Amino acid sequence: MIGRVMVVVVLAACGGDKVHERHVDEHLPAGSGTQRAREQGDHVSIAPEMLRDLRITTAKVESRAAGERVSVLADVRVNQDAYAEVASPTTARVLRVLAKAGDEVKAGQPLVELASADVSKARGEVQAAEERVAIANQNLARKQALHADRLIPERDVIEARAAVKEAEAARTAAAGQLQPFAVSGAGGVLVLRAQVGGTVIERDVVVGQLADPSKTLFRIGDLSKLWLVAHVFERDAVRVQLGATGAASFAALPGRTIEGPVVWIGREVETPSRTIPVRLELANPGGVLRPGMSAMVSLPVGEPGGPVIAVPMAAVQRVGDRWAVFIPRGVGEFDVRTVGRGRELGGDVEILSGVAAGEEVVVDGAFLLKAEFDKASGEGGHDHEH
């Protein structure tokens, strides 16, 4: 019979039940099929209390390029093109803190107000310099009038003009000393502002604290796009291509894969590990990724091949004298599906037959399901065909 069957998969997870609804063709590649699996008794049931301990995760069967891939360790970092660390340019006392960790700030937004003796001194020097310029201009005007009446020689006018230029230069220098302090308000109030827009990743400042240039008060970054730095062995890194798409999986996000392009390949080998850093850019629209997270990233190396069906390597288990995957069919219910195992593709395995792209297979927990199935089969619980 050729048709389509609606299958609802309910998989218990720590955070609650997730219900996935999909259509599965009854005509699957050779050696597969829900109906055939159930007729042969290729099925395993797990008690709810045991299911919680298995920590099962699933992934969809993918159609992907068959080129060689490598899986390497990686870590998430801030995008340094949209990142800034804020520190006081001089020793100062904290008067008021205007932002906290987790706040979204705009470039130029005030973060903290400080009281600084250096600011007071610099402001005083600017005011004194401005007064000297005013006096020099008044003196020049007086001497020009006297020269017009032929009461003083032209040399005195020339000297007065030189004095004005000297006073103006001193005023410019004094203003330059004050400018880095971003002064606002009266007296010696120093305001530190955000150099970039983004999220306040870290705040390390409290009212009354004595800040100095060596201490970072705020770390700010745009977390909507992050860097993933993969540590690739030199023999593989030289075959990674700019623009290639890598697929990252995270221990903190089981069952989820995030893809991103390769945007930079290091020009120097890190001697202790003999690896070359390869940087990917990952979009982070939901903010689920955090700087410092660890990951495994699968990268294509060499020339890409034609499309193949593939699943994560952990999903394929040896059951008796065959290779098999586990298909979730309900709470604690799994079909054991025979598959044809092909080449290893980095952290994935090519599947020659048995499943179709888009189907769901168990990844984490597949080995424990295999052990339960083997145990039940040994007790005669399944009429298992070899």
Rank of each mutant, 00 (worst) to 15 (best):
L140Q: 13
V126T: 08
D156M: 05
A175G: 13
L114N: 07
E154R: 12
L95M: 13
R161C: 01
R123Q: 11
Q179Y: 02
L98K: 11
R155Y: 07
D103K: 00
A129W: 14
V126Y: 07
R93H: 06
I152G: 08
N137E: 15
A141V: 08
K121E: 14
A162S: 13
H147D: 10
R171K: 09
L140C: 01
H147K: 10
L190V: 00
Q144H: 03
S116A: 12
V119T: 12
A174K: 00
R123H: 11
V133N: 13
L95Y: 11
A182G: 00
R93Q: 12
E130M: 04
N137R: 15
L111C: 01
E168M: 02
K121Y: 10
D103S: 04
T172Y: 07
G187F: 02
V183R: 07
L146W: 13
A107G: 02
A174V: 00
T172S: 13
E130G: 02
P180H: 12
G187Q: 11
Q109P: 08
P110W: 04
N139E: 12
H147R: 13
A145R: 15
E159V: 06
A148K: 14
G124R: 15
G188C: 15
E166D: 12
A117V: 10
I158C: 00
A169F: 04
E130H: 08
E159C: 01
